[in-house]
Amino acid sequence: MHLRNRIANAFRRKVLLGGNMHQDYRRLVAFAGALALLVVLIPTPATAQNRIIKGKVINEKGDPIEGATVAIQGTDVKRDYTVKTNKKGEYFYMGIPFGVYRVIVRAPGYQPDFAENIRPNINQDSEIPFTLKPGSDHKLAFELSKAEMEQIKQQQEKAGQQKQGVSEANALLKAGATLAEQGKHAEALVEFKKALDKAPDEPVILAHIASALANTNQLNEALATYQKAIALKPDDAALYTNMGVLLGKMGKPEDAKEAFKKAASINPAAAAQNFYNLGATLVNSGRAADAAEAFRQAIQADPNFAEAYYQLGICLSGNPTTIPEALKALLKYTEIGRNAEQIEVAKQLIAALQPQAKKP
């Protein structure tokens, strides 16, 4: 309306001043039309970018995550916007230009997450919620460089090869164990070594090799193999136990004693068995008094360890001063022991020792 009034006024001035009235009027009308077209075709900046991306970030328990970093990245045209979540875990960003976006969320103590192919709309807010899982931050796949992607590819290929090797090693290990059960220790050793070729430095395989070496009288090689296995897995009590048995067989009772003690310290639940093994080693070395102490420790660790009572009674029966304790141990064995032959031996010893115990 204002534009029309201005044209009309200009027209009246032209009439008063003189001139080509009709030609000037046409020019003014054309100019006014062009201005009107510009007004229609050029939108205001506020209307053009009034797009919103918002959402809420929570953990797996449903609790809001405050202070999470939300990165909004253009994937068609390079654009980057960043916003933080509030106390309610909410984020809000207004003024997003037309385009395609990726939204990435990171928070300390959580694994990153993202959403892709987000296309904000003027008429509707783009709401993108996130539920983060506990964990550490790391690069997402699209954030990796070519060199990093190649490294991951190589690691995955190596892991696949190792998995295949472990599968083959397990089959060979099983075959060797079957041969060992049949007493074919030399043949078992061959299978165990094949398994080790498939899965090098595997403590379980090394332990089987050491056992096969010991059973084929290759004691020094067996000891070295146990030591290698222990170096790889120093918290395995069974390795120390088996090495202790081997050391006893090699006539090294003090070293065996240390091995059994180490096994007992690593796995207190198996302490009774380890002290019993120590006692057996000492008995075979002719050290009955030390063996008796080891059997006492086994009984202390497990008051129902029948074999420890039996062996303790045997060890103490040869010394007049320890006959009373020997009788108690043998009597206990007759109550809880399960080996019928040994129970009979215990009864015979009791009958033989009781008269001596009564002597002043």
Rank of each mutant, 00 (worst) to 15 (best):
residue 316 L to E: 08
residue 342 Q to Y: 07
residue 295 F to Y: 14
residue 12 R to Q: 10
residue 345 V to Y: 06
residue 136 S to A: 13
residue 41 L to Y: 12
residue 123 N to H: 11
residue 318 G to Q: 14
residue 133 K to H: 14
residue 205 I to P: 04
residue 113 D to W: 04
residue 114 F to M: 13
residue 217 N to W: 00
residue 254 E to F: 00
residue 322 T to L: 08
residue 19 G to E: 11
residue 285 S to K: 13
residue 332 K to N: 11
residue 145 S to H: 10
residue 37 L to D: 07
residue 298 A to C: 04
residue 351 A to Q: 14
residue 286 G to L: 05
residue 250 M to G: 09
residue 45 P to S: 06
residue 304 N to I: 02
residue 246 L to A: 06
residue 313 G to H: 03
residue 109 G to S: 05
residue 206 L to R: 05
residue 183 G to L: 07
residue 88 K to D: 10
residue 155 Q to Y: 04
residue 281 T to A: 11
residue 301 A to T: 00
residue 346 A to G: 05
residue 128 I to H: 08
residue 340 A to I: 10
residue 356 Q to S: 14
residue 162 Q to N: 10
residue 50 N to T: 08
residue 310 Y to C: 09
residue 97 P to W: 02
residue 44 T to H: 11
residue 360 P to T: 00
residue 132 L to C: 05
residue 99 G to T: 08
residue 316 L to W: 04
residue 52 I to C: 11
residue 55 G to P: 01
residue 124 Q to E: 11
residue 45 P to M: 04
residue 47 T to F: 11
residue 16 L to P: 00
residue 123 N to A: 13
residue 161 Q to L: 15
residue 284 N to A: 14
residue 277 N to F: 03
residue 117 N to V: 10
residue 35 L to T: 09
residue 191 E to R: 15
residue 18 G to T: 08
residue 83 V to G: 07
residue 215 N to I: 05
residue 113 D to H: 03
residue 226 Y to S: 08
residue 233 K to P: 00
residue 285 S to D: 15
residue 302 D to L: 02
residue 346 A to M: 09
residue 38 L to K: 10
residue 112 P to G: 04
residue 246 L to K: 01
residue 288 A to N: 14
residue 235 D to T: 12
residue 80 D to E: 13
residue 238 A to N: 08
residue 44 T to D: 10
residue 157 E to Y: 00
residue 42 I to V: 15
residue 239 L to E: 04
residue 259 A to T: 09
residue 286 G to H: 05
residue 229 A to L: 01
residue 228 K to H: 13
residue 300 Q to C: 02
